[in-house]
């Protein structure tokens, strides 16, 4: 039967998380920032699935479902905020938001 080293799965999750973090830190377009956040959430879900697979339990998949729900709610609110930001400032540049006063 197939046997995958557990640390390889966790390293894959860590790599995806770091790539998402680079995306969040470097991009100025807010849509890209939200997409990178999705990558990070997905990586944490992958870590849960790897742990669930290590012990052969279903609890990790339940936690993945919770992360999935969280990601869906977060994306809905975030995209609503992006639309509102585009209406007010006519740009998707997050540097504009630092000029808000109060």
């Amino acid at each position: 039967m197939a046997s995958i080293p557990v640390e390889h799965g966790l390293i894959l999750a860590a790599l995806l998380f770091a790539l998402g973090l680079i995306g969040v830190l470097t991009r100025r377009n807010i849509v890209f920032v939200l997409m990178s956040l999705e990558v990070m959430l997905n990586a944490s879900g992958l870590a849960f699935i790897v742990a669930a697979s290590r012990w052969g339990h279903a609890e990790g998949q339940v936690m993945f479902l919770m992360i999935l729900t969280l990601a869906a709610a977060e994306v809905a609110v975030g995209l609503g905020l992006i639309i509102q930001m585009y209406r007010r400032f006519h740009t998707v540049d997050i540097n504009v938001l630092s000029q808000m006063k109060g």
Partner: peptide
Amino acid sequence: SAILLAQLINVLRNYEHSIDVV
């Protein structure tokens, strides 16, 4: 991010288990 990744991988370094996929 590379520093963070190195720390994460360092944590996993001594962790050797294999998954018997069920």
